[in-house]
């Protein structure tokens, strides 16, 4: 088994389209819940090494990080990078009352990550007819050292950015799949492509 991960162009296109739909559904769900417009970027799909993953998620200062694992037919982790700016407005949309305590802020971040990650995953799973379950999200602070020690060489990541209108808030969601799940995913996509 080679250590690099490769998707052919068809697979990549299909996955990108699937992600697009899932992310759209996710944005819709959140928009519905907090009654405001949400913008999404075009999903980026790439194969990364641990240090590339680190620089991918560690691009912004003043951000919070969450991670959430999922199990089932495909397994992996979703990481979310939540901007500090605009968080107060979003919290008030989620019916938190100002001033926000530290716990309120943390809860808002965890809830947002959970909603978006959950919706993305659910969308993807539904379209591919895969069963997945999301576990409890937790806050974490990434540091380069711990990424270097990760025991994988390559992973497939799918990245998308959400922006909330009327606020400077933005959030990036990064999906990472392990190798077995990736094979499962590409097989499923191949089946779909027929």
């Amino acid at each position: 088994m080679s250590s690099t991960i490769s998707l052919n162009e068809d697979q990549r296109d299909a996955l990108q389209e699937l992600m697009n739909i899932s992310m759209g559904q996710a944005a819709n769900s959140l928009a519905h819940l907090i009654e405001t417009k949400i913008g999404i970027s075009i999903p980026k799909i790439s194969a990364v090494t641990p240090s590339e993953l680190f620089s991918l998620i560690n691009r912004s200062e003043n951000a919070y990080y969450t991670r959430q694992s999922f199990l089932g037919d495909i397994q992996g982790e979703v990481m979310a990078v939540v901007s500090e700016s605009g968080l107060t407005e979003v919290a008030s949309l989620l019916e938190y009352e100002a001033p926000l305590s530290k716990s309120d802020v943390e809860e808002t971040i965890l809830e947002l990550s959970n909603i978006l990650a959950g919706a993305c995953l659910a969308g993807l799973s539904n379209q591919l007819e895969l069963a997945t379950n999301l576990n409890m999200p937790t806050l974490f602070s990434p540091n380069k050292a711990s990424f270097v020690e990760l025991n994988w060489q390559h992973s497939l990541v799918m990245e998308v950015q959400f922006d909330i209108e009327l606020s400077s808030f933005s959030m990036r969601v990064v999906f990472c799949l392990d190798r077995t799940s990736l094979i499962k995913l590409t097989d499923t996509i191949d089946e779909l492509l027929g």
Binding site: S29, H32, L33, E107, L110, E111, N114, I115, G118, A119, A122, L134, M136, P137, T138
Partner: peptide
Amino acid sequence: VLQHPSFSY
């Protein structure tokens, strides 16, 4: 609304 689990820690 979301038909998706919610967590509290």
